[in-house]
Amino acid sequence: MKIAIIGATGMVGREITVEALRRGHQVTAASRSGAAVEGAPAATPQALELGDSAALRSLAQSNDVIISATGPSRTGGDHDAWLAQNQQAFDAVGDTRILVVGGAGSLQLPDGSRLVDAPDFPDAYRSEALSAARLLDVLRSQPNRLDWTMLCPSPVITPGERTGNYTTARDEVAGPKISSQDFAVAMLDEVEHPAHRRARFTAAN
């Protein structure tokens, strides 16, 4: 399968790239810099801006699946611009399947409230989490022609061990943490065996 990964040089994007190659897929690793992905020499690097509709359209036409692993700025960048760029990407991919890395903040607690709205949610991550939650709303508002899936991590995602074992849930928190390696496993399992088309789900160790 031909897979293009946008944001391939980030922590999550790199693990997804490595996992896709491990499974024998042909991978284009797209990022702003166009740099090679550490630990993934077989991936083809490509410089790409998320809002470049023409480049995204070409990428979608030459791949079976797009995986978007970008996030809003943590250093004061315009989150509205990031959301607008995502919309441009959704418009550009046509009928090519797109899987999107979401955020844990939009996941639901047992009382039905969102994790990001909890009083003890860290203030340092609240703005980022709210924008990621808005991205889910953007996806849910797309016309039915868009073949999308969003995979949200657990509240804590850090580099760790690839166990290949995880549990999933639809909208509620599935567990407290997941390794970035097992998050990538869950993403590629969804690529190869679609079970959440036009839906959001989450994974936890």
Rank of each mutant, 00 (worst) to 15 (best):
K2P: 11
A4W: 01
A4S: 09
A8E: 13
M11F: 07
V12M: 11
R14M: 03
V18Y: 00
A20V: 07
L21P: 13
R22A: 15
R22T: 15
R23H: 00
H25K: 03
H25W: 05
V27K: 00
A29H: 04
A29E: 12
A35I: 13
G39A: 14
A40N: 15
A42P: 05
A43M: 12
T44W: 10
D52L: 11
A54L: 11
L56Y: 06
S58C: 04
S62Q: 10
S62W: 00
N63T: 02
D64P: 08
I67N: 07
S68V: 09
A69R: 02
G77T: 03
H79W: 07
H79M: 01
H79C: 05
A89K: 05
D91G: 06
I98Q: 14
G105F: 04
G105A: 02
G105N: 10
S106N: 15
S106P: 03
D111V: 10
P119F: 06
D120V: 14
P122F: 11
Y125M: 14
A129R: 03
L139M: 15
R140G: 15
R145M: 09
L146Q: 05
D147G: 00
W148P: 04
T149L: 06
R162Y: 01
T163H: 08
N165V: 11
E172P: 00
V173W: 06
A174N: 08
G175P: 05
F183E: 12
A184E: 01
E192K: 02
R197F: 02
A199S: 13
R200Y: 00
F201T: 11
